[in-house]
Design a protein around this nucleic acid. Structure first.
Length: 652
DNA sequence: TTAGGGTTAG
């Protein structure tokens, strides 16, 4: 029954006074001139609504005193809700108010139960619900909402089922829609407990296919990767508001389907639904994945115009930092970061990682030092960023030190991804043996990323023996990852081990794996994407492209450029190798950009695979003789070619 | 007067 610390009150005015006002720090007794102040009920409710601090209650406490005497359950229910929202200890003032009501109704019970749920005193809340039933007070939709919320917070799906049964006995979700809200909360409970079938059953049982519960289900489907089911449900909803549209957009974005996310965004605008800051954060994230600038600029404009600029909104700001960095504009990303008034671990992590993948390790480390002076704790993603910075700049000692102390200093236990960064750092800097030892001595089973990093390092240092070890693990862990086979075959071919190359190619044939074609793309005027595949001669301007490349080659040769024939992993003649090198996708894209852009324009090329050795040397030379800045994003990082050298310092 | 949607890596 009721808490033993608070006895049932007699209804004398003195007793009410004592229990309502005994704690002077919460609410001092009314002064004589406020005594029994005559405010109307609606005025009291409105004053209660505007309270944002317990002290504000002083303005109405004489009226509250009167409401206690008059047993005004409506005002007292509101008061308990307000006290709960202002974090007043539930067993103190709110409980005292409840206890002096002679016949509490369903609303008053529910307000009290809610207070206990908000205070995370779940068992007391459930006990009160039992008391309420014993007093023959019929629960309503709000009561069930509150109880389902408690079950959700407790993760107690059994309790949820039991309450579901009781609600069903009271008439289910009803034709009147009376229990609609409770149904939504129940669906949310089943969804959060991972019982999708029950959630769907409740949804199908409800008389109205409500957009709120529909959104819960859509998000749950999307989290499980079932985007088709999510889309189907979305199409079935009669009413679609900005929240459910946003849920679809961010779900596509989180499932690495940025084009679908942007398509949904355009559909939403077609339906004249205004995006809010939630929508924009999701759309910006999709733009970041695509790495295309034009669309991203438009979204930034929309954000600024609708008052959700990076200065005001930390979600938008962080998303913009990430987007600019992924579009190859790390300086723009930093400009955004600097104007943000609020920053969180996402903002810092995105910026640190941005500097890291753009080869600006010193700035990444400086920002990390700056972050450590704030109250924001680095998390596992931040540390991946810092280790990546060390890796791309060959800062071996700094990386070793951070990796050794990260658990103790930041409370982050190294995951497989942190080991990947470390193996990458050691491997890239030539410490192949130490990298191998680290992979072998991991306390957790190394995933494909770890062995992949080692294989990458073996490719840089032409070490087919260690590559053999890494590849054998990779072929077991990721039997269908074509990239591993190709990289291993390249390592063997560079070492002239043609027997090994045929062995790997045969393995690929048996498994039916086909090479992922190398592809580079650039963004033309009006955001049009021009794609170039390796060896592809079908572009309408191919003749001109070829001519530009030949001219460039002649000039580069005068500066000492020699084609790097080892970059071709086919057993063909040197002449053929030279031909193949000249049709690598990033070179085609470069020539196209030289043809179609002004001389002051920075050339930005995206590539799906790692840039090859020959193209890297070629781009360095091209940046010098054309006096153009060239930015190439490969599958892992950005290369900024300027005046004959690259920001990666040849560590990639 | 209760309920559904947001940013970093992989």
């Amino acid at each position: 029954m009721r808490s033993p610390t608070i006895p049932r009150l007699s209804l004398s005015a003195n007793a009410i006074h004592k229990f309502c006002f005994q704690d002077k720090s919460i609410l001092p007794p009314p002064t004589p001139n406020h005594h029994l102040q005559q405010l109307s009920e609606s005025r009291i409710i409105s004053l209660l609504d505007s309270c944002t601090h317990l002290n504000h209650l002083k303005a109405v406490h004489a009226s509250i005193y009167r409401c206690c005497l008059e047993q005004n359950r409506f005002v007292l229910t509101k008061l308990i809700r307000v006290l709960t929202n202002l974090n007043s200890p539930i067993n103190g003032y709110p409980r005292a108010i409840f206890n002096q009501v002679q016949h509490p109704n369903c609303f008053l019970w529910t307000a009290l139960i809610r207070g206990y749920v908000v205070s995370r005193l779940f068992h007391e809340a459930i006990n009160l619900y039992d008391c309420m039933k014993r007093d023959c007070v019929r629960p309503n939709s709000f009561t069930f909402c509150t109880l389902f919320k408690a079950a959700t917070l407790m993760g107690d799906v059994g309790l949820g089922c039991q309450l579901h049964g009781e609600l069903f006995k009271l008439g289910g979700f009803g034709g009147s829609g009376f229990f609609l809200h409770a149904g939504n909360t129940l669906i949310d409970l089943y969804v959060k407990c991972g019982v999708m079938e029950s959630a769907r059953n409740v949804f199908d049982e409800m008389p109205v296919r409500d957009v709120v519960s529909g959104t819960s289900l859509i998000v749950a489907y999307a989290k499980g990767g079932a985007m088709e089911a999510a889309m189907e449900l979305f199409d079935e909803l009669d009413v679609k508001d900005v929240v459910v549209w946003t849920a679809m957009i961010t779900s596509y974005s989180q499932n690495a389907r940025p084009r679908d996310a942007l398509e949904m965004f355009e559909r939403m605008q077609g339906c004249a639904i205004e995006p809010d800051e939630f929508t924009l954060a999701g759309v910006i994230s999709a733009c970041a994945q695509l790495g295309t600038t034009k669309y991203s600029m438009c979204i930034r404009d929309i954000a600024e115009r609708s008052g959700h600029g990076p200065e005001r909104n930390v979600f938008i700001g962080s998303a913009l930092v990430d987007m600019y960095s992924k579009c190859g504009r790390v300086d723009d990303a930093y400009a955004i970061f600097k104007v943000m008034r609020e920053r969180n671990v996402y903002s810092y992590s995105s910026m640190i990682l941005g500097f890291a993948v753009h080869g600006r390790a010193v700035e990444a480390m400086q920002l990390f030092c700056e972050m450590k002076k704030t109250d924001i704790r680095p998390n596992r993603v931040t540390l991946i960023g810092v280790l990546t910075a060390c890796s791309h700049a060959g800062m071996v000692e700094e990386g070793r030190k951070l990796f050794k102390t990260m658990e103790e200093t930041y409370g982050v236990t190294p995951t497989g991804d942190h080991y990947t960064c470390m193996v990458d750092l050691l491997g890239r800097s030539g410490h192949l043996e130490e990298a191998l030892d680290l992979a072998k001595s991991m306390p957790i089973e190394p995933h494909g990323g770890v062995w992949g990093a080692l294989l990458g390092a073996c490719s840089i240092y032409n070490n087919p023996e260690t590559a053999e070890i890494a590849a054998s693990h990779l072929f077991e862990l990721e039997p269908n990852n074509i990239g591993n086979y190709v990289l291993f075959a390249n390592i063997l071919s560079s070492a002239g081990k043609w027997d090994g190359v045929s062995r790997v190619r045969k393995l690929m044939r048996i498994k039916g794996l086909k090479k992922n074609p190398a592809c580079s793309w650039v963004e033309g005027k009006k955001g049009i994407i021009h794609e170039f595949f390796a060896g592809d001669q079908t572009h309408p301007r191919f003749r001109e492209i070829k001519q530009v490349l030949e001219d460039l080659l002649t000039r580069l040769r005068l500066h000492g450029y020699q084609p790097n024939l080892v970059s071709v992993s086919y057993d063909v003649s040197d002449d053929d190798k030279r031909q193949i090198l000249m049709t690598h996708s990033e070179k085609l894209a470069l020539a196209f950009e030289l043809l179609s852009t002004e001389s002051a324009h920075t050339i930005r090329i995206m590539k799906n695979l790692r840039i090859c050795e020959d193209c890297h040397i070629f781009m360095c030379g091209a940046s010098k003789i054309t006096e153009r800045e060239i930015v190439v994003r490969d599958n892992l990082r950005f290369h900024h070619f300027r005046d004959g050298s690259c920001s990666c310092g040849n560590f990639w």
